[in-house]
Simulated assay, not measured.
Amino acid sequence: MVKAKRKKTNLGSYKFGSVLFSITLSLFITGLVGLILLQAKALTSLIRENIEIQVFLNKNLSESDIKKLENTIRSKPYILEKDGEKRFSYISKEEAARVFTSEIGEDFTQFLNENPLRDTFTFSVEESYQSADQLEDLVRELQLMEGIFEVSYMQDLVESINKNLVKVSMILGAFVLILLITVVILINNTIRLALFSQRFLIRSMQLVGATKGFIRKPFLRRSFFFGALGGLLASAMLFGLMEYGRQMIEGFNLLYNLEWLLLLFSGLIILGAILSLLSTLKSVNKYLNMSLDDLY
């Protein structure tokens, strides 16, 4: 009669397929929400970059006065700087007249006998200066400068953007909090169920004199590895999704920030490793301190 071979079970060698799948899926969903937040932030920044302030100058200013005024305003910290260049432009009244004439198809200066337009500075404002109060202070500061006739900006648009951003931030913040709690519970329950099959092996190791630290070590090492691996797999899936979006959606590159993506992926790997480690530690300690009757 041939005896069936009993498969040897090593401490900490429980099946991690379902655990890895759960960790990867949970982190992928978390990362997807993170991507949405990053894209929302990038989109918000693009919208804010289009908030411009127009500075209309007094008539009959000399070129030297205009240049001096331009240098003064350019040096201000609230001027948006992107790709090493200030988002600042000067449009003379002659150039403005040519543009306006080409748009309406008629030279309006002919029947007015003069050019009513003014030399204008137009610039974008740094995001940190775009609150309603800061913009009002900025406008007042500019209007006090000699040679400036009027300062204008789209006040209603700024107020609308700021109000909507507060509402969206509160909703997304609550959603992220709920999601994180759900992910923690899911990973914790998955690991706890996986370790349930190891409870008698843990007790057997205790009976032969193994210390708690010796028993914990292979479980913690394995869980840390698979948690990090789950984060890595989730990051790879998200990166593939981003690359697909760049190829299929026109203008998607404007929202693409590799530095923020790398930070998100690093966070997912660390989060997966830590959550897996802590959940395993909690479950192993539970079975280490459980009585024999409770194990059944």
Rank of each mutant, 00 (worst) to 15 (best):
S64W: 04
L57G: 09
Q155L: 05
T44Q: 11
E159A: 11
M205I: 04
E49D: 15
N285T: 05
K67I: 00
L20A: 15
Y256N: 00
I274C: 05
N162R: 10
K93G: 09
F265S: 03
N60M: 03
A40Q: 00
I185A: 12
M242A: 03
S124G: 11
T122P: 05
R118Y: 12
I79S: 08
Y296I: 01
N71P: 04
A273L: 03
F100I: 00
S235F: 07
D294W: 08
L35R: 02
L193M: 10
L117D: 13
L232E: 03
I51W: 05
K93M: 03
L233G: 10
S197R: 10
L138K: 13
F21P: 03
E127Y: 04
L233F: 14
I187R: 06
S128P: 06
N58M: 08
D137R: 15
K93Y: 09
N50R: 14
L264S: 05
V99R: 15
K59F: 06
E243C: 07
I23F: 09
S276I: 00
V2W: 10
L43M: 00
F226H: 09
M154E: 12
F224W: 12
D137S: 15
S160F: 07
T101W: 08
L201A: 08
L233E: 05
Q110F: 13
S128N: 14
Y153C: 02
K86Y: 09
F56C: 03
T109H: 13
Q134Y: 10
L241D: 04
L69Y: 06
K15E: 15
G173C: 02
L220H: 11
T280C: 13
S223K: 07
F226E: 04
E49H: 07
W260Y: 04
S75V: 00
A42F: 00
I215D: 04
S223Y: 07
S131Q: 12
M242H: 09
A228P: 02
Y244I: 00
N285C: 03
L69E: 03
V139Q: 14
G34R: 01
V151F: 05
I23H: 15
L238W: 10
F200A: 04
Y129N: 12
D83F: 06
Q54E: 10
D107A: 13
L43I: 02
N60H: 11
N189W: 09
D156I: 02
V284M: 06
F239C: 01
